[in-house]
Design a binder for these strands. Structure first.
Lengths: 219, 219
DNA sequence: AGTCGTCTGCGACTTTTGTCTCAGACCGAT
DNA sequence: ATCGGTCTGAGACAAAAGTCGCAGACGACT
């Protein structure tokens, strides 16, 4: 059984007291996913809201030819499927577990009634969703204005916790909106310039300042 | 003075009764803008929420080199600056009047207190914002997967109320995320194929079905 | 009617990105 | 140790997008 304490890692619920949260917890259940497993599929409509407890979840949309564009990488504490839950339309993106993932699931109508009782929760969600919009705007700017090289540099900086980004070139390509070969080329060039070192399944960032310069150079 | 009736065109306020709406109306004021005038600037933070009463408003973000990427074209009934209002961060986009525009402005904190009193309003806003997210995801898919030709075809279809799109090639280029020359080329090709006719400041759509075929051809 | 600014047409050229193809390297499992 | 799958390096080529430069056309305004 889920206890209210489990939900405290989600700032969204800060506005609710323990009693209320306990009632909510009773309506939720926990699901586990294996790496690579799809959690929600583009086009389907589940009517449920997911909260990431452990692991990494990738939100991406798929083209007809199979290419994928990553919209966001979610960490514990984040939620997804909100959009579909609030406008009732099919989900615009696919969510996939990129590691062992543990999620908590809440029916959308439970959340709606909860908002009616606790308007603060609605405000928190609006705050949350505003962040999502912001992230998408940044992505649009990236795709519209910047070269693969620049996008890659950004991605590496953002992705490199503790000096190295744990991702294959294929994965980096999808996150930056291009294909493996192009990402590989750009990475090799960055490596030649001494900014990164390439290893199998990871990229070690040697010179963060240099990468930041790459991003700015286009100006 | 603003009357509550003026606010009824915004579905957002459906949940409020006339008395409440009257109180809200007292807090709002109306502003007019000339074509081309900037309403909110990227990076600034106004703490106000705008509702479009009349005219067309363009939301766009600007690159360092001056190129613009249009995020959305707003019609009467739409709102903007919500994101900045709810997370307190600077506005990610510039809003510009593309015609004579009349807006109603509401302080963000008034809206917040209003949501606390009427949670339904929060739900309505969440619904609204979900639509915004959806629009951005579509834009990202467009930029990532489709060619200029295809994006242009989409834009023309979506834009052509009553058979013709009233926009310069420059404007169409910005909406489709490219430059004037490229958009011009693609348009001339579409014209040669008999799908559209080019005129000064407008594009007449001759064959909507043909345009839809253009969008699908890439598959 | 003339002038100015905006809008358009269009060609030559460069750069960037994407496609195709193959070979070698690495890793885990048998 | 060998095998198969995944990951990577790399080159040739094609296509798309962007840049530059310029000329003409149209409209608004004086």
């Amino acid at each position: 059984m889920l206890a209210s304490a489990h939900l405290r890692i989600f700032r969204l619920f800060d506005a609710l007291n323990d009693a209320t949260l306990g009632v909510v917890a009773a309506r939720m259940h926990r699901i586990h996913y294996r790496p690579g497993e799809q959690i929600v599929h583009e086009g389907e409509q589940t009517g449920e809201i997911f909260f990431v407890e452990h692991g990494r979840v990738r939100l991406a949309c798929t083209a007809i030819d199979g290419r994928e564009q990553v919209l966001a990488m979610l960490r514990p504490g984040a939620s997804f499927n909100l959009i579909s839950a609030f406008d009732g339309q099919p989900n615009p993106a696919t969510a996939r577990a990129m590691s062992v993932v543990q999620c908590i699931v809440l029916p959308a109508d439970t959340l709606r009634t909860l908002i009616r009782q606790h308007p603060e929760l609605g405000l928190a969600l609006l705050h949350d969703m505003a962040g999502q919009v912001r992230g998408l705007v940044v992505l649009v700017e990236d795709l519209a204005f910047r070269s693969v090289r620049e996008r890659l540099a950004r991605q590496l900086l953002q992705d490199a916790d503790g000096g190295c980004a744990e991702a294959t070139q294929q994965e980096l390509a999808e996150r930056t909106g291009t294909v493996r070969e192009i990402a590989g080329r750009a990475l090799r060039q960055l490596a030649q310039e001494g900014l990164v070192r390439l290893e199998r399944g990871r990229v070690v960032v040697l010179d963060p300042a240099g990468l930041r310069a790459v991003i700015a150079e286009h100006a």
